[in-house]
Amino acid sequence: MSSPLLSVKGVTKKYGPNTVLNDVSFDIGKSEVVGLLGDNGAGKSTLVKIMSGVVDATQGEFFWDGKKIEGINREKTEELGVETIFQDSALVPQMSITRNIFMGREITNKLGLMKIKAMDAITAQVLDSVVTIEGIKSPKQLVASLSGGQAQAVAIARAVHFKRSLLILDEPTSALAVRATEALLDYLRQLKGEGVSSVLVTHNLHHAYQVCDRHIVMNHGRKILDVRKEDTTVEELTAAVVGGAEGIRRYRESRGL
């Protein structure tokens, strides 16, 4: 059996006296869609930031395709082809859509001058793939002038454009309309076929259950459930998210498991 794409081992994160993540370990397989579930404050976003190399873990190890990643940071994860849609979208409102999408990864000539026409054209193309988001007038539009859903689409478009091996989505559908949400879930299934793994963080268990091959449930900074889709139900996931470890136990008892 080949090694998983990414292995997270024993991650602990402390903010001052608060332990936000407590000894969390899990794998993300190649071409696998993993659902990361849990109540508000469970530590999902913190885990996403650590996996993306944006925030340092207090403790923990990371393995990529079986090889240890020494000193994980954003530069390394970028090199590995990891793209993340952060919950707080990570856009610069005062900049245009194009400049947001290519921020830090501008297409330039040898002098470092940006090829703005080329970037605008690609932006239009990438946003066109996000057709269910209406009302974007031009790639030159400032992000400040976009609606929440449109801004989220820009963040999604950026990650979609640059991802190569792993796409992490932290509550990507919170501002999207129903149809755009359906389309995004559809896209995650399509990604699998292209050999790209993804991690979907969401509140909506039905969304997660629809597309994810495996579900990880977090509760107060601990991993309390890690199951394949075949081995669980929406009801069990709900019990885990709402009731924690105790919830899972009661659910299993009630089912005579």
């Binding site: 690609i122 689409a153 478009a157 454009h161 755009a180 359906e182 389309a183 559809d186 896209y187």
Partner: peptide, 12 residues
């Protein structure tokens, strides 16, 4: 982006 990939987020 490959041009023929089709809409990424187009609803079915």
């Amino acid at each position: 982006q490959p041009a023929n990939k089709g809409p990424v987020l187009s609803a079915p």
